[in-house]
Amino acid sequence: MPHSALDAPISPLRQRLIDDMTLRRFSQETQCIYLRDVGRLATFLGRPPDTATADDLRRFQVWQQDDGVPVPTMNSIVSALRFFFTHTVDRPDLARKLVRLAHPRKLPVVLSRDEVARLLNATTCLKHQAALSVAYGAGLRVAEVATLKVTDIDSERMLIQVERGKGGRYHNAMLSADLLTLLRQWWIAGRRQGVMHRDGWLFPGQHPMKPISTRQLHRIVVEAAQAADIAKRVGPHTLRHSFATHLLEDGVDIRVIQVLLGHAKLDNTALYAKIATRTVRAVTSPLDRLGLFKPGEISPDG
């Protein structure tokens, strides 16, 4: 993705914000978003954002709402500004003035197991198949897949070490036997192609010294879904959603799934209970337990 927000001239305040985010291991993508959103406040004020008052913040949010800014975008801006006022300029009193709006969360798109198999088989090369298989088989975010290194694969403990998950958190993801087999096949092929190195990226980009981009991974998923004749709107995160939903349908405890996904809050994992259709179908309705209605016993006259 373009990084123009990071490439702009650096003021002392901007550099302090970048340093605060880097210290907390924010991804470059997150840093770009936060810099952009703090910049929106500066543009609205016409002066540096650290001079904002509580009334300025109220007017800024009212203006966004009147201007038709989507609620998810407004809430994303609130996250950036709360970080800025809490950590960069040490004004937590202003951070508390920012209002996060309630927004009904849409249920994510989930693929069936057959659709996942068709999608993975529709990839055009071993590297792409391995990358998407990691997204589904380990439930990783697209940025986590992109930045995996060869040394992150722990075949002895059958774990994938995710060094920089969301918010810079570290966690271990599962490594299945079949996924390890596929990754070993990719390792052999990558070494033969001269793009794989023991201390290098697991999925190198067009330049072997750089990782594959999240944008490219998104394109790979979309093209594979089209080739597999899957009509649903899918992206790399669809595979992560499918991973969690399929585990829940298989009876895996939701708290275990929370750990595997690297979620900080159980509420985020609980969303998948709403879309686990096999789990719903496995529940016996209390009406059925009454035994009132038997097949063939209902009069055709009603």
Rank of each mutant, 00 (worst) to 15 (best):
Asp199Pro: 00
Asp199Val: 06
Gly200Trp: 09
Trp201Ala: 08
Trp201Gln: 09
Phe203Asp: 02
Pro204Val: 11
Pro204Ala: 09
Pro204Asp: 13
Pro204Thr: 10
Gly205Tyr: 13
Gln206Asp: 07
His207Arg: 11
His207Trp: 07
Pro208Ile: 03
Pro208Gln: 06
Met209Glu: 15
Met209Phe: 00
Lys210Trp: 05
Lys210Gln: 14
Lys210Pro: 00
Pro211His: 01
Ser213Cys: 01
Ser213Gly: 03
Thr214Trp: 02
Thr214Gly: 09
Arg215Thr: 14
Arg215Ser: 15
Gln216Ile: 01
Leu217Arg: 05
Leu217Tyr: 08
Arg219Gln: 15
Ile220Cys: 03
Val221Asn: 13
Val221His: 12
Val222His: 13
Glu223Ile: 01
Ala224Cys: 04
Ala225Phe: 02
Gln226Thr: 11
Gln226Asn: 11
Gln226Phe: 10
Ala227Leu: 08
Ala227Asp: 07
Ala228Tyr: 07
Ala228Ile: 08
Asp229Glu: 15
Ile230Thr: 09
Ile230Pro: 01
Lys232Ala: 09
Lys232His: 15
Lys232Trp: 13
Val234Pro: 05
Val234Glu: 14
Gly235Asn: 14
His237Gln: 13
His237Leu: 06
His237Ser: 10
His237Gly: 13
His237Ile: 10
His237Trp: 01
Leu239Asn: 06
Leu239Ile: 04
Ser242Pro: 07
Phe243Glu: 13
Phe243Ile: 13
Phe243Ala: 15
Ala244Gly: 06
His246Gly: 06
His246Met: 12
Leu247Phe: 07
Leu247Ser: 02
Leu248Glu: 08
Leu248His: 05
Glu249Arg: 05
Glu249Met: 06
Gly251His: 02
Val252Ser: 03
Asp253Ser: 05
Asp253Asn: 12
Ile254Gln: 13
Ile254Met: 14
Ile254His: 11
Arg255Leu: 05
Val256Ile: 13
Ile257Asn: 05
Ile257Gln: 02
Ile257Ala: 07
Gln258Tyr: 14
Gln258Cys: 04
Leu261Asp: 14
Gly262His: 10
Gly262Cys: 14
Ala264Ser: 14
Leu266Ser: 01
Asp267Gln: 10
Asp267Ala: 11
Asp267Glu: 15
Asp267Trp: 04
Ala270Ser: 11
Tyr272Met: 05
Tyr272Ala: 02
Tyr272Ile: 03
Tyr272Trp: 08
Ala273Arg: 06
Ala273Glu: 12
Lys274Ala: 11
Lys274Tyr: 15
Lys274His: 15
Ile275His: 07
Ala276Ile: 05
Thr277Gly: 00
Arg278Trp: 00
Arg278His: 10
Thr279Asp: 14
Thr279Phe: 10
Val280His: 14
Val280Ser: 10
Val280Phe: 14
Arg281Ile: 07
Ala282Glu: 04
Ala282Leu: 01
Ala282Val: 00
